[in-house]
Write a protein that binds this DNA or RNA. Structure first.
Length: 295
DNA sequence: TAACGGTTTGTGATTACTTCA
DNA sequence: GATGAAGTAATCACAAACCGT
């Protein structure tokens, strides 16, 4: 994780436990790729139906062609002719160059929302008319407002989306995409946190398991010794440990008790460290949100 | 120290698929 | 069961930050 860089994205809704300063997220897919998803589904299928498109959508040459094709086209070019056509339901030969393309835009492309989209688009293209525009990056203010909104509700209803878009001077689709990405990345990060938590749980349970096995061994060894029965305190003096509900031997028990047994009795009621975030020292932090019992 | 090029990270956007009313 | 809206998962592409030379 970069230190000097602002983390506007994912830090707000996540509480990191002690000793867990940062988590590295590498969302970058392998470049050589063809990486199909684990489920074997293909996600690379382009949606254009242009007859001139390369035959194998997954081939490297196809990608190269696509890239070189896109290179001359501004990805963030705001809807001018092509996009307006798309809003009207006309399909583009290359949907990736349009920020309002696809099914979603078709369903959104009506009524007030469309009006706002058009208004926003007009406004921005006026500003950036002429030269090739770089990939859009939201301003700090825009990001901050989106973050605030996300903290309040991580999904938006259409009204909220429109209002937010209007407030930020963005298209509703952009707001929607921002929220989608934000949810996805929050979830991803939470998954990593949960994974880390479970790993620590597992480690602690392994340690505890070893300790208990050792204890069983020791008890078995004592059980085999005849002295064990002779020197045992009468059952009436046994008490129950309130925490672990095992039979405990009072520390002031008869001095005639086998010292090995007494030592065992004194040591076996150590508190069991349950909190995986603090294997050595007690931590005020509990488990990650996702692992807390939900009400 | 500045400049430069390669690498890594963050993020806007798209697409295919799933879920649910 | 069919359909459409809204969501998720996976991925791409690019800008910016980082880093070694």
């Amino acid at each position: 994780m970069m230190v000097g860089k602002e983390d506007l994205g994912l830090s707000l809704s996540l509480s990191f436990p002690q000793n867990h300063h940062s988590l590295q997220l590498n969302l970058r897919p392998s470049l050589a790729n063809s990486c199909s998803s684990p489920s074997g589904l293909t996600h690379q299928k382009p949606s254009w139906n242009d007859a001139s498109a390369p035959s194998d959508p997954n081939s490297e040459s196809f990608r190269a062609e696509t890239r070189s094709f896109l290179r001359g086209i501004d990805v963030n070019r705001l809807p001018s002719t092509v996009d307006c056509e798309e809003e009207a339901g006309v399909s583009s030969p290359n949907s990736t160059i349009s920020s309002v393309s696809g099914k979603r835009s078709e369903r959104e492309g009506n009524g007030d929302e469309l009006e706002i989209e058009r208004a926003c688009s007009r406004g921005i293209s006026d500003e950036e008319d002429g030269d090739t525009r770089k990939k859009l990056r939201l301003s700090k203010d825009q990001s901050a407002i989106l973050e605030e909104s996300f903290k309040e509700h991580n999904t938006l209803n259409p009204k909220q989306k429109l209002a937010l878009a209007k407030q930020l001077g963005l298209r509703p689709r952009q707001v929607e995409v921002w929220f989608q990405n934000r949810r996805a990345r929050t979830k991803l990060k939470q998954t990593e946190v949960d994974c880390e938590f479970l790993k620590r749980c597992c480690e602690n349970l392994t340690v505890e398991n070893r300790r208990l096995q050792k204890e069983v061994h020791e008890l078995r060894a004592l059980k085999l010794s005849p002295q064990f029965y002779m020197q045992m305190t009468p059952p009436t003096t046994l008490t129950m440990c309130p925490s672990c509900e095992r039979v405990a031997v009072p520390l002031n028990a008869s001095s005639t008790v086998d010292p090995r047994f007494r030592q065992l009795a004194q040591t076996h009621h150590r508190p069991i460290q349950i909190n995986p975030w603090a294997p050595a020292t007690p931590s005020p932090h509990g488990p990650p949100d996702a692992l807390r019992p939900r009400s």
